[in-house]
């Protein structure tokens, strides 16, 4: 199967600041991809590059084998739900469906109507009067009824309350099961993605830290706890992601493809959240070290 998103040394800068740099990833089709990272890490930039909203400053990106937003046909294959799920405040719910029907060749009218009915939205209601959750659902409906091969969602649930979050995610998952399309969605909270994603990209400080299938990531990352030991004395195939030490004890999060047999270590399984936090922590630790070196 082809890749849904392939980036080669992709970079984008605003003025002199790089919002995203040296991003090389290859996402195979058929996944629900979670893009996590702290605020300002470059998640929105990466997603906007993928949907053709932004032009790259460096490198290149292909989505479903084509240039993002290059042609109407390419636009028809990719759906995008932007951050804060914007809708036209002055237009009614029915107007939005009509907009979708007029602007998309593969529009699924029956699905759109069914979803709106299911959500209990009144077609005559102005979108400006909808609650945050309802607005997000309307934007999702537009994205889904377009029948894309890839749906990109940028922090779709960030401004929603927990109940609306769960409902939104549930609807999204039902649709992916029913219509078989790939999804890329971003969040700064792992808990939003944990239950739905089978592929994860961790983006910190405008760089991709790690990307891969969730099962594989969990299988290759371990937390080691044992007597204090310097990182230099770990086997060469164990990449340290994060480390913390007390006087007598060391705790490492490492990535390795081989099983760990050293009896000195207590090996524990990581949760997805621990894994992401380890990468965020690593980045900040690196920065701290760099800053200290500069000061010296």
């Amino acid at each position: 199967m082809t890749s849904v998103l392939e980036a080669q040394a992709l970079g984008r800068k605003y003025g002199k600041r790089w919002a995203l740099r040296e991003c090389t990833i290859d996402i195979p089709a058929g996944h629900v991809v979670g893009l996590v990272g702290p605020n300002g890490a470059g998640k929105t930039t990466l997603l906007k590059l993928a949907c053709g909203q932004l032009e790259p400053s460096a490198g290149g990106v292909t989505v479903l084998g084509g240039r993002p937003a290059g042609t109407p046909a390419q636009l028809a294959r990719v759906g995008f739900v932007a951050q804060d799920t914007p809708v036209y405040a002055g237009l009614t719910v029915a107007d939005h469906l009509r907009l979708g029907a007029r602007l998309n060749p593969r529009w699924d009218e029956a699905m759109a109507r069914e979803r709106i009915a299911q959500l209990g939205l009144a077609p005559a209601q102005r979108a400006g009067k909808l609650s945050g959750g309802q607005r997000a659902q309307l934007a999702l409906t537009l994205g889904l009824a377009k029948r894309p091969e890839l749906l990109i969602l940028d922090e779709p649930v960030a401004s929603l309350d927990p109940l609306a979050r769960r409902e939104f995610m549930q609807h999204l998952m039902e649709a992916t099961v029913e219509h078989q399309f790939s999804v890329v969605l971003s969040s700064h909270l792992v808990s939003d993605l944990e239950r739905v994603c089978d592929f994860l990209i961790v983006l910190v400080d405008s760089r991709v830290q790690v990307a891969g299938e969730v099962d594989r990531l969990l299988a290759t990352h371990h937390r080691l706890t044992g007597p204090r030991r310097d990182p230099d004395r770990l086997p060469a195939d164990q990449h340290v992601i994060s480390a913390s030490h007390t006087d007598r004890q060391s705790t490492y999060v490492v990535r390795t493809d081989t099983p760990i047999h050293d009896p000195a270590w207590t090996v524990t399984q990581l949760s997805l959240e621990d894994l992401v936090l380890a990468y965020m922590d690593k980045r900040t630790a690196d920065n701290r070290r760099a800053a200290l070196e500069v000061q010296r």
Partner: peptide, 17 residues
Amino acid sequence: EAGTHLLVWNQSITRGR
């Protein structure tokens, strides 16, 4: 200002059109 350009530019129509 409303961010709706992100909505409409991601329908199947180029922004030039």
